[in-house]
Lab assay of single mutants.
Amino acid sequence: MASQGTKRSYEQMETDGERQNATEIRASVGKMIGGIGRFYIQMCTELKLSDYEGRLIQNSLTIERMVLSAFDERRNKYLEEHPSAGKDPKKTGGPIYRRVNGKWMRELILYDKEEIRRIWRQANNGDDATAGLTHMMIWHSNLNDATYQRTRALVRTGMDPRMCSLMQGSTLPRRSGAAGAAVKGVGTMVMELVRMIKRGINDRNFWRGENGRKTRIAYERMCNILKGKFQTAAQKAMMDQVRESRNPGNAEFEDLTFLARSALILRGSVAHKSCLPACVYGPAVASGYDFEREGYSLVGIDPFRLLQNSQVYSLIRPNENPAHKSQLVWMACHSAAFEDLRVLSFIKGTKVLPRGKLSTRGVQIASNENMETMESSTLELRSRYWAIRTRSGGNTNQQRASAGQISIQPTFSVQRNLPFDRTTIMAAFNGNTEGRTSDMRTEIIRMMESARPEDVSFQGRGVFELSDEKAASPIVPSFDMSNEGSYFFGDNAEEYDN
């Protein structure tokens, strides 16, 4: 783990906690998980779902989305002020799938948001429990990260689609708070800032007046979040320049895209947490497990152990491969979309394939898809080993990566060399080191050039047997250095459309 220093740990961010010791953190995270579980059980009762239907990941996603929508204050306010045809701002819903006479049927349900809020609060001892809501947002974000390569979004903001390893959390809503900021990748933060800068260039009043003052505060806050992700002084200094700019424009845009590229080699610290679907927490609570009393951590053995003992089902389209669908969801559960496939294969105990080789589309089923041909199958979400999630980018030494994705962002704290394609990355730096950030740029390029592919990161860190909950005997895996390590390699994943 990167030293926490003055930073709060993510469990504290996750639970809005002030400084807590490890036991208190485990208890408050457990409380959050228990609340999600209780809410899910109650919703299944309301909807009269069978046990099997309640364990269907598509039903879980609909129920999670309903509660997130019920608590989305800004959108609710907007919907009330701008009524649109056929949208009731006070209601929320989605597809629920039921097994009827041996076939899967889709039923569109509609609930009062007020009623959903009441059920959620009741499951969370009367609190709004925003930490639990954020947790579900991060699960949705991790699922998107594993399912889609955001080529269009990258290109629109002047970045290269091969930089997708920097895009963790790119679909997280803005209201996801400190826990959300911690899991956002460098590219995601750059993209958010670039969008602001572009608006400022096109709209003279963007930075002016009372609204402009708020915009400015948001801009500086985002700059500080991004600065905190960088691990070298030169990158941090460049972020200070971007933040202090009187009138952010093209120079800042250039600096930010430069920094994003540099992060492929001088990786930023991005938190990883295993956020599971509500249909995993519900049955665990129903079986009598007391998360608050037992304590829970999002970055240790607990999620692995929970998945070892969970039964989750998914709808499967006619030509999809259930094992591939399982891999997709497994990666999402562990926030591992940008991790090295060699490491993932070792931990999972079966070969993890790149996205383009998977015969599976996303987990969600569109409303126009034919239910007649839908089957369902068990998702295999178990693992051979477990490993500690990392909050750091690993040290800054790398190795060759593949054509589709030119770097990785480690999820697990496991000893290995970190793949990246130096030639491709360095070719993108057209040696432009003039301007006010020239000395920093020169320094950053120097550090990137001296990074050695064969150097090892996370020295001495290994994986653990599932029986080793105290992480007492690390097993340090050895990897084939020459092997392909990137998930979005030469990829044809669908595009994420909101």
Rank of each mutant, 00 (worst) to 15 (best):
S335H: 13
A2V: 15
H140G: 13
E220H: 10
M196R: 07
G54C: 10
A131L: 00
E372H: 08
I225S: 13
F458R: 00
C333Q: 05
M331P: 04
R152C: 04
L379V: 12
K236T: 09
L328H: 01
Q364E: 12
N101C: 15
N368T: 15
L418A: 05
Q409K: 10
N59V: 02
S274D: 14
T45W: 11
R98P: 00
P83A: 08
W104R: 10
S297G: 13
A401G: 14
R384K: 14
N395A: 12
K48E: 07
M222D: 08
F230R: 02
E80I: 14
S60E: 04
N21F: 14
M136K: 05
L226W: 09
N211L: 12
L353F: 06
F489M: 06
R461L: 11
A284G: 10
T378I: 06
S269W: 09
T62L: 11
S69L: 10
E81S: 09
T232Q: 12
V285R: 00
D302P: 15
E220R: 06
E14K: 11
E465V: 14
L172V: 12
E434A: 04
P419I: 09
M43K: 12
V280N: 00
S314R: 04
D145I: 04
E107D: 12
F206N: 10
S367N: 11
R317Y: 13
H324M: 04
R452A: 00
V270D: 04
D145E: 11
S473D: 02
N247V: 15
S438A: 14
P318G: 12
G462C: 05
L344F: 11
G460Q: 14
L56D: 04
K325A: 02
V242H: 02
A278V: 14
L172Y: 05
A451P: 05
A234Q: 03
V183P: 01
F230P: 02
A451Q: 13
E434Q: 03
Y289Q: 04
P283E: 12
K184T: 05
S170A: 09
N432S: 10
A428S: 11
N432I: 13
A182Y: 01
L264S: 03
E81P: 00
E454Q: 13
R441Y: 07
T350C: 13
M32F: 14
R162H: 06
